[in-house]
């Protein structure tokens, strides 16, 4: 792939961002007392590998709970209707739209956000996909990027999705990029897949 596809004002050889993008918190136990306040439900789940609990009103979606209550703002709100993929997180290992899931219904589940992706991977520092997106300049404004990376991480782990570009594009079609960085997103996924040694016919 031509190196000229890189952005002229951006030097991908610079050291990638690190610490601020990693989820270093361990205390997600936000609920207090023995019972949840009236009108709320107590929800216990695993968030980025840590035990989490929260008291939420029934109409709170997972996306808003992550951003507003847990301060995990790496998961972005785009359309808020399941049409853009910016809010993609992993629920029990599967990519889902956090905007269409009630926080109340993740009781007992395992949720991973972009902040927890690096830690979910064996090895130091960023997840290979995060590094690859950075190296390949697989974004412009960056708004959709965390959702793109979460979808890409799930598809690399999904043995039912073949490795060819057409299959990857199809599997990634739920993540819209208004900047049109698709070409480099595809390149980043190829790069990370090579590093991870996952190739499927």
């Amino acid at each position: 792939m031509a190196e000229s596809s890189r952005c002229a004002v951006f030097d991908p050889r610079e050291a990638p961002p690190s610490a601020p993008h990693l989820d270093s918190r361990t205390d997600y136990m936000l609920s207090e007392g023995d019972r949840s306040p009236p009108g709320t439900l107590r929800v216990g789940f695993t968030l980025n590998g840590h035990p989490a609990s929260i008291d939420v009103e029934p109409n709170v979606v997972l996306l808003d709970a992550l951003r507003d209550r847990f301060s995990l703002t790496g998961t972005h709100k785009g359309c808020d209707h399941g049409q853009c993929g910016a809010c993609t997180v992993h629920l029990d290992g599967r990519a889902v739209n956090a905007c269409l899931i009630l926080a109340a219904s993740v009781d007992g589940a395992r949720v991973t956000t972009i902040e927890g992706l690096a830690a979910s991977h064996e090895g130091e520092g960023l997840h290979p996909l995060q590094r690859a997106f950075h190296q390949c300049d697989a974004y412009q404004c960056g708004y959709c990027t965390s959702g793109q990376i979460m979808s890409a991480a799930a598809l690399i782990d999904d043995e039912r999705v073949p490795s060819d570009d057409a299959s990857v594009r199809e599997a990634m079609s739920g993540n819209i990029c208004r900047c049109g960085a698709y070409k480099n997103i595809l390149r980043a996924i190829r790069t990370a897949r090579a590093e991870l040694g996952v190739d499927r016919a």
Partner: peptide
Amino acid sequence: GASTQLRNM
């Protein structure tokens, strides 16, 4: 139909 995420849900 739909997207990977929506089919998962």
